[in-house]
Amino acid sequence: MTDFAAQQPGLDPLAMPPPGAIVEDIRQARRRAGVRFALAFALTWIVLVGGMALAIASTGRVHPDFIAEHLPFFLGGIPLTIFVSVASIIFATGFALIGALGRISRNPVIYGIASLYVSLVRGTPLVVQIFFIYSALPQFGIVLPAIVAGVFALSFNYGAYMTEIFRAGIQAVPRGQLEAASALGMTERHTMRRIVLPQAVRIVIPAIGNEFIAMIKDSALVSFVALQELFWRTRTVGAANFASFETLLFAAIVYWVLTIFFSLFQERLEKRMAQSDRRP
């Protein structure tokens, strides 16, 4: 740099700030740009959300007192909503793992069962599946308690979607890993359990996070089977008081806040996992 500047008439190296100072200037400029971006982002949200709130308030249909009166009852549904979502995502992961192993199986019967599972579940509405598991299984003498039926239906459904995610995750593990494992004399089962699945799980964890956030919203469907979670509570109070507009709006806000909360949680988890891949 100094050499270059010395060759340029009018560029006096002594007149230029020392390199260290430039580095510091660049850093500060970046920080300022970052702060500006964050402020503008926050302002955009405030304006848009505020605008929506004002528009809704201008309808004259929002009665804070009414919501406040039923607030404890509504919010009392959140623990069940979260419990159902968490339990369902855990079991869905299990279904997905088994389904994915079936979908990559060379055994035609196992492959057939797994493929039928995915096709059937993805090809029918979730609400019908919930109703079927709740109301039709008893015809076979299988009476699942409502909470079990709800969690089972959600996890069975999500498991089918996640089967394809897991299968893609397993297939995303580089071929070299399989070759290295078999060159070391590992059996296929051993390779799958110790080499492929641990890597596949890391690949699919962000996708599981997305599924979980979708699950929080779909958990509203278990209101169908007498579970008095968030959606059931808002819907029932709304219908009873000719106030569906207010209560559904309120439910939407609560679901939104929940998904924002878990999205942030998921982002942090992903960051931590990305770091752990680089750990020394």
Binding site: F131, P138, F224, V225, A226
Partner: peptide, 13 residues
């Protein structure tokens, strides 16, 4: 508090 449809469908288990 099941859904009305679950009641009228029978098969309450």
């Amino acid at each position: 508090t099941p859904d009305w449809a679950a009641i009228t469908a029978g098969g309450w288990g």
